[in-house]
């Protein structure tokens, strides 16, 4: 009522893209404390919010098969939610299947680089 000329409107702007990413071979070591040279993720000194450790989906998925990732963790025993012993192998198999199915098929769009 008071405003005449849409004073509340701000033009929309594009979000700055995440920039370049580096693909790394599986299990490549990360020098501790040397984030500016992070091989596994891309770190920006000038991103909004400061320096960040950034990983894209593809890289995170590749880490899934590392030995540490496969070691069973200590989980509280919650029936139907965590399966520390009995169903472990079954669940792992499912995961592998799902992962393969997904990466081959319907989710190709996630490989596109932004």
């Amino acid at each position: 009522m008071s405003g005449r000329c849409c004073p509340g409107q701000t033009p929309s702007r594009d979000i700055p893209g995440p920039g370049k990413r580096l693909a790394l071979p599986d299990g490549a070591p990360l020098p501790p404390g040397a984030y500016s040279t992070t091989p596994g993720g891309t770190v920006f000194g000038t991103t909004p919010g400061g320096t960040r450790i950034i990983y894209d989906r593809k890289f995170l998925m590749e880490c899934r098969n590392s030995p540490v990732a496969k070691t069973p963790p200590d989980l509280p025993d919650i029936p139907g939610v965590t399966s520390p012993n009995v169903e472990e192998s079954k669940i792992e198999n499912n995961h592998v299947q799902n992962y393969e199915k997904v990466s081959v098929g319907e989710e190709e769009q996630f490989d596109m680089d932004i």
Binding site: G40, R64, V68, A69, K70, P73, V81, T82, P84
Partner: peptide
């Protein structure tokens, strides 16, 4: 509400995630 666990790295995340049921299988 129950805490399942805390992780600090990508690999530790997968340790937990791979040993929990997927949400679609929760009842």
């Amino acid at each position: 509400i129950k805490q399942i666990g805390t992780f600090a790295s990508v690999e530790q995340f997968w340790r937990f995630y791979s040993h929990m049921v997927r949400p679609g299988d929760l009842t």
